[in-house]
């Protein structure tokens, strides 16, 4: 349990470790694509941590990286085919960022530093923690970017072909929203920078009190 919470807070992939940023910035224009991406990364993390911690004894050190990338790539390809056949629209929205999970530094970095050394149980727990932390971070970024940037909150839209529900909320008209810069690439950098500063402030505050 401690490992899981650690992965979400102290070792949060995006806000603390600064890994896996590309997808975090690119897919967070809508809330829906953000959490689907987060779930995809979580699945890839769980799958590859399972295989890598089982196989690491038999993988020689000097071919470690290529073999790990192949294992991760296999899971990513499976996910890609799955999404393409069940939710094709979402597959188009995620675009090249889906295959790019292969080179997402968080998966490879964790594999090299943790899963190749730890036991199966610990690796799976760590993967769950890191994956949930990643999912959480993406959801926070997307939440702010979508609400402030486009005046909506998409819970289920493209994914409705799988779940059968459609849920897109609109915020009543007002004079402030939408701030369309947040929808653009610059807004992604801005949101992440400000959120990071905010979390730093929280941490400093907590430390000061204890």
């Amino acid at each position: 349990m401690k490992t899981i919470i650690n992965g979400i807070t102290k070792e949060n992939a995006i806000f603390v470790l600064m890994l896996g940023l590309c997808s975090a910035l690119a897919v967070t224009t809508t809330f829906e694509s953000a959490y689907v991406m987060g779930i995809c990364v979580l699945i890839v993390l769980l799958g590859s941590s399972f295989l890598i911690s089982l196989l690491s004894k038999w993988i020689p050190d000097h071919v470690q990286i290529p073999v790990y990338i192949l294992i991760i790539g296999t899971f990513v390809t499976i996910l890609e085919i799955f999404l393409e056949s069940y939710v094709p629209k979402l597959h188009d929205v995620l675009g090249i960022y889906l295959p790019l999970i292969v080179v997402n530094c968080i998966v490879l970095g964790r594999s090299l530093s943790v899963y190749s050394k730890e036991t199966l149980g610990k690796s799976l727990l760590d993967a769950l923690g890191i994956g949930l932390g990643y999912l959480f971070a993406l959801m926070v970024i997307a939440f702010f970017r979508e609400i402030l940037g486009t005046n909506t909150l998409t819970l289920m839209d493209h994914i409705s072909s799988l779940t059968g529900y459609r849920a897109v909320y609109h915020i009543p008209n007002n004079s402030i929203l939408p701030i369309s810069i947040l929808k653009e690439p610059a807004g992604a950098f801005l949101t992440l920078g400000l959120l990071m500063g905010f979390f730093n402030l929280l941490r400093a505050h907590k430390k000061g009190r204890v």
């Binding site: 610059a186 950098f189 801005l190 992440l192 920078g193 400000l194 500063g197 730093n200 400093a204």
Partner: peptide, 23 residues
């Protein structure tokens, strides 16, 4: 730079301004 923005956070703000220019 304000303490909480030191390092990466301010770097992202810089990136945001650069992205605006490139747009």
């Amino acid at each position: 730079v304000p303490n909480c923005m030191k390092g990466y956070p301010i770097a992202f703000i810089v990136a945001a301004i650069m992205a605006l220019l490139f747009a």
